[in-house]
Simulated scan of single mutants.
Amino acid sequence: MAGKRIALSWSGGKDSCMTLDKLAKAGEEVACLLTTVPREIGRTFGHGERTELIAAQADALGLPAEFIACSFDSYTEDYVARLGELKAIYGLEAIAFGDLFLAEHREWGTRVAERVGLEALYPLWMPPGETGEALKAFVASGYRAVVIRVRDEALSPAWLGRELDARFYADILLERNVCPMGEGGEYHTFVYDGPLFRKAVDWVPGERLRLETTTRLDIGPPTA
C-alpha cells in the first residue's frame, strides 16, 4: 500500500536529510521538498544557502524543489498561501518537519498544516537527551555533510567546513551547553551525498562571512 503524499520542509541540512531517510524507509511518498526564501535576501531562510545548491540537492535526490518566497513581515501568511497551492498541485496529504524537540517550532508547523488541511509529521521528535545518539546515527548512516554556519556564542569559526564524521561526533560532545545536533542553532550543515542521493552534489568552499550573531561559510557550486 502506498504511503501518504508528503511535502518535506527542507533546509538542506542533516535534520532534513534524516527526516527524508526515515520517511523513505517507512514507505511514505515524499512528493516535493519545500524551502523558504526571503524576498528581501534571496537566500534560504534556514541556513543562508544559495538556492542553486538546494536545487542541486533536489536533483540528486530525484525530487522536485519548491521555493516559497516569504517576507519577514508576513512569513506565516506567505507560507500558508503557497502551501495551499502546492497541496493542490501535488495532491499532498501531509507535511513533514525535521524538528527534534523545540515545542514552539512544532506548534508553528502544526498550526500551518491545520490551516491548509494537512497532517503535520515530526518523524525525528525525541527527548533532548537523545540527540547525542541521533548524531551518532547520522554519522554512521552514510550521508555526508559539512558545517556551513555556527552561532558565535556557541562555537568558534574553526568548526566551519568540518565533516560530520566520527571525530566531529567526539569533539562536539565535549562542548558544554551545545546540543550535539545543533537544535539550538549552534551549527548548521549542508548534506551533499549519501544513500538516497543518485550523485554527489559538487560544492566548493568560499569566504567566511561574519554576520550579526553567526559566522557562515559561503559555499557554492564549482565554477567552470
Rank of each mutant, 00 (worst) to 15 (best):
D21N: 14
E212K: 10
L86W: 06
A154P: 00
Y75V: 08
A145W: 09
D202R: 15
E28Y: 07
P64I: 09
I41A: 12
E66C: 13
E28F: 09
D15A: 07
A55M: 04
T110S: 14
E153S: 12
S141C: 10
R208A: 13
G13Y: 03
D171I: 02
W10K: 04
P157D: 03
P221F: 01
A137L: 09
W10N: 05
H47W: 10
V150W: 03
C70A: 15
G194P: 10
G142A: 08
L92Q: 05
E49K: 00
S71W: 02
L86R: 04
A7K: 01
D21S: 15
I54S: 03
R82S: 03
T189D: 02
Q57T: 11
F101M: 04
Y75P: 08
E153N: 08
C32I: 05
G3F: 02
L196K: 12
S9E: 01
I54W: 01
V147F: 09
A113S: 12
D59A: 15
R43N: 07
V37K: 15
S16T: 02
P180L: 04
A24K: 15
A7N: 04
A134R: 13
V139Q: 05
A137P: 01
D73P: 00
C17P: 07
E119I: 08
L86I: 06
L118S: 13
S74K: 10
I148C: 11
Y169V: 03
V147S: 06
E183D: 05
K136R: 15
R82G: 01
G13L: 09
V112Q: 03
D202C: 09
R167D: 13
I172Q: 02
E119N: 03
L61T: 11
T213P: 00
C179R: 00
C179S: 14
S71T: 14
L211I: 10
A120Y: 06
E93N: 09
E66G: 08
D21G: 01
E183H: 07
R50V: 04
E104M: 06
R167T: 14
G161L: 08
V191S: 08
A60L: 11
L33V: 08
G46I: 06
R216A: 12
L174S: 11
E153T: 11
P128H: 13
V201H: 09
A200M: 10
W125D: 08
Y169S: 10
T223H: 04
E119C: 04
D165V: 06
F101S: 00
F45I: 13
Q57K: 11
G161F: 11
L102Y: 02
R167C: 04
G42L: 12
G206I: 07
E49M: 15
E133Q: 14
I219C: 08
R216F: 02
T51F: 01
A81P: 00
R50L: 15
D202K: 14
V112Y: 07
L100I: 12
R43S: 06
G161N: 06
C17V: 13
D152G: 07
L211A: 10
E49Q: 12
L53G: 13
E28T: 04
K87I: 02
G206T: 10
G182Y: 08
E114R: 14
R149Q: 13
F97Y: 15
V112K: 06
L124I: 13
G91K: 04
H47F: 05
I41N: 02
E114S: 14
A31I: 00
T189S: 14
G117C: 08
